[in-house]
Amino acid sequence: MTEKTAARALVVGEALVDVVLRPGADPAEHPGGSPANVAIGLGRLGRRVDLLTWLGPDAHGDLVRAHLADSGVHVLDGDRAPDRTSVARAHLDADGAATYEFDLAWDLPARWDEDEDAPAVVHTGSIATVIAPGGEAVARLLADRRATSALTYDPNLRPALMGSPVDTLPVVEHLVGLVDVVKVSDEDLAWLHPGVAPVEIARDWLSRGPALVVVTLGGEGAVAVTAAGDELTVTAPRVEVADTVGAGDSFMAGLIDGLWSAALLGADARTRIAAADRGTIEQILTRCVRIAAITVSRPGANPPTAADLER
């Protein structure tokens, strides 16, 4: 095993099938789910990654498992599973932007076949952190792993599933207070806090505990605030957009991978990230926006491999 794949990541959250509906085109089925996409992004960047998810024993579940395996993602076997695999329908407009509707169930098994070595990082986000009954189980898992692993979180909100901002905000802020790193989109922040500047919200979240909060700005790039007091902005490369599916997830995978390469993960991640110099964080973010740009230049959630980045 190479040095890069020696440690492992644990990603917790939904894996499902995206049915993509484009104007004037036949529906297309693709494996998806925000945490699953992050796991795939990490696997393609050469990381050893386990996914704890909730897949049914059906054709859709087989499709997702095969897709994950192709990118080196190990799906953890649990003591129970749903009757069927969840489905998300992504409606793309003429510009390739996606809106979603869902047919899903979410929970965690009580026990699973995870290796005993502590992961370098535990990541979660999106539907898995909010939808009952699994959302509370995810929060408990994060709290249990704080002493041994870095914790990362991307709210990746789905308003169609999550009720009102008033209902969702306490859940989001509780998780923000548990983790070391948060990545959030400006669209998510606008839904949670209409009319408030993203950096203002990021600074408030930083005060709740994380060492790093990153706000993605779509095609404009990203801005980050750090526990060291820095504010960093990086611009995104200009590309022809195929669609935006999976862009934020590939950015998240790149962020975890970059922090990992800089030796900023592990049990004391919060302290390490807080002590990191500005140039290191800026270099990581610059690579993240490049990864996301490659993803949006391709149809579907198709993040780059390490070899793609070298090219």
Rank of each mutant, 00 (worst) to 15 (best):
L52V: 08
L52G: 02
L52S: 05
L52A: 07
L52F: 10
T53D: 06
T53K: 08
T53L: 12
T53A: 07
W54C: 00
W54V: 03
L55W: 04
L55H: 00
G56P: 02
G56Y: 00
P57E: 08
P57R: 05
P57F: 09
D58S: 03
A59G: 06
A59N: 09
H60T: 03
H60P: 04
H60A: 14
H60G: 11
G61S: 04
G61F: 05
D62S: 15
D62A: 15
D62W: 13
L63I: 01
L63C: 03
L63Q: 13
L63A: 14
L63M: 14
R65Q: 12
R65P: 06
R65S: 11
R65K: 11
A66I: 01
A66C: 03
H67V: 04
H67T: 11
H67Q: 10
L68Q: 04
L68M: 10
L68Y: 06
L68N: 04
A69I: 11
A69K: 13
A69T: 12
D70A: 15
D70Q: 13
D70H: 11
D70K: 15
S71A: 15
G72E: 01
G72S: 04
G72K: 00
G72D: 02
G72I: 01
V73Y: 08
V73P: 00
V73K: 05
V73S: 01
H74G: 03
H74N: 05
V75L: 11
V75M: 02
V75D: 03
V75K: 02
V75Y: 05
V75I: 12
V75N: 02
L76T: 10
L76M: 11
L76R: 13
L76D: 12
L76C: 12
D77K: 09
D77P: 01
D77T: 14
D77Q: 14
G78N: 11
G78A: 08
G78T: 13
D79K: 10
D79G: 11
R80S: 10
R80D: 03
R80L: 04
A81Y: 12
A81R: 15
A81W: 12
P82L: 07
P82H: 08
P82S: 07
P82E: 11
P82I: 07
P82K: 09
P82N: 07
D83S: 10
D83C: 03
D83V: 07
